[in-house]
Amino acid sequence: MDLSLKVWRQAGADAKGEFKTYAAKNVSEGASFLEMLDQVNEELNAAGEDPIAFDHDCREGICGLCGLMINGSPHGPQSGTATCQLHMRKFSDGDSITIEPWRATAFPVVKDLIVDRSPFDRIIEAGGYISINTGAAPDANLIAVAKEAAEASMDAAACIGCAACVAACPNSAANLFVAAKLNHLNLLPQGQPERYTRTVAMVETMEEYFGSCTNYGECEKACPKSISIDFIALMNRDYVKAQFMNPVKTGQR
């Protein structure tokens, strides 16, 4: 099939970007969306033009590096699918496709379609872990975890950190990502000791970069792992609880 692409080009963080239109000729149905871009890049390279820069690596929907706003849909039209798993058979001959980077104040464009998502790392560094030094762990089966809890935790832990939730959110809120990361740990017995300090640390770090949640629910729809906004509610609950549960050094003046 033949397509016409309208792609955001931006030389660097400070450069001013613009849309450029390219033709993608005889793209095969079976090709993935990123392979279609590879093909365009081959032609650009042959024509002596700078190829389109976009983030990707695993191409299996697990590393979370890919992520494009495709015709106004984060990761494209297919739900529960990362950009790299989207295949061209979802498009038809003659379509014109607008391809843009994620947009949010916290995600400056690095080049073309690549944005800087490192605020997500800052949030994890603020407390998205269980403090246990190597070698200090007890036998794994000393910790019984209800199957339901393990499953729920895994549902949240499936997050690939792609930031489509932020891209999708009209408020540029990262609540779904942070809720997923929090509940992965907060739902497990191992996560309890730091549960409330973790919650405050991650939430307030999040709020330094991102907007607030009006419960629009777009993030859930955009999420390639279909992570539920119920986790956002749980995060809100834990954040309020944290106001009372967090150690206030009793007895100290």
Partner: peptide
């Protein structure tokens, strides 16, 4: 206050293509 924060977080960057909303409804918007 929340509106102010959200506008700031959203920044100037707008999407060129019309956003295909799936969850927001007239009420929430």
């Amino acid at each position: 206050e929340l509106t102010r924060r959200n506008v700031a977080a959203r920044g100037r960057g707008r999407y060129e293509a019309k956003r295909q909303y799936e969850a927001v409804n007239y009420a929430s918007r």
